[in-house]
């Protein structure tokens, strides 16, 4: 319980669909069993179609999200283009490994669509930047065990955006209901080639 990864709680999941991806997180910020806030989103946008989910120690979620905001803004100014999800994933990896012997206590998830080819892309990382590429889904956070279960049960290949939204929402909601440290509402992003839909799920408030 005193692992830095499970002090504040939180959950995040990304899924691949047909020409689309989805990423979702819960909104809880806690101190052990005590809930402090139900308005602490863990998904951040870094280009029109590149998103990063961060679970783990809340202070590092904030610090790391701000660090990447800085790095991606500098990239955009220097290169006069938006960062591609695959490139962003490599940036996340190298930035985390830079802290190999004093890591940020976060478990990142990247989801996005390549601006040029339109190919969906998702991947996850450990806290020192090892990339976990996946063709189906990526889970992270204190509800990751539960998310593995719900995702294994609900996900299927080539889901259309609307079906993917239903699948990821049910996977997240039912996983966080089985985790005491996650929940209290959710953000769900459905990312298509030139459209991003963000939905707020109320979820159980108890």
């Amino acid at each position: 319980m005193s692992s830095p990864f499970s002090i504040n709680g939180g959950a995040c999941v990304a899924m691949r669909g047909k020409n689309c991806v989805a990423i979702a997180c819960d909104l809880r910020l806690g101190l052990q069993s005590l809930t402090v806030s139900n308005n602490f989103p863990k998904i951040f946008q870094y280009s029109p179609t590149a998103f990063l989910g961060l679970t783990g120690l809340a202070t590092d979620v904030s610090t790391v999200s701000e660090l990447f905001r800085y790095k991606v803004n500098m990239y955009r100014l220097r290169e006069e283009r938006d960062i591609a999800p695959k490139t962003f994933a490599q940036l996340v990896s190298s930035s985390l490994y830079e802290r190999r012997f004093g890591p940020w206590f976060v478990s990142p998830v990247v989801a996005g669509i390549d601006g040029k080819s339109g190919a969906p892309f998702i991947c996850g990382f450990d806290s020192i930047g090892c990339i976990d590429y996946a063709a189906d889904f990526i889970v992270s956070g204190t509800a990751s065990d539960q998310l593995f279960g719900t995702c294994e049960g609900l996900w299927e290949p080539d889901l259309e955006p609307d079906d993917l939204f239903e699948t990821i929402s049910q996977a997240l909601l039912n996983a966080v209901d089985r985790d005491a440290l996650s929940g209290w509402g959710a953000h769900v992003y459905i990312i298509e080639k030139d459209k991003v839909t963000k939905r707020l799920l109320k979820g159980r408030q108890d």
Binding site: R78, E79, T87, Q90, L91, S93, S94, S95
Partner: peptide, 15 residues
Amino acid sequence: KRIYNEYPPTRILVQ
């Protein structure tokens, strides 16, 4: 390359 795991575009290298 050690940051993005790809080689720099020409203009970036030139700069």
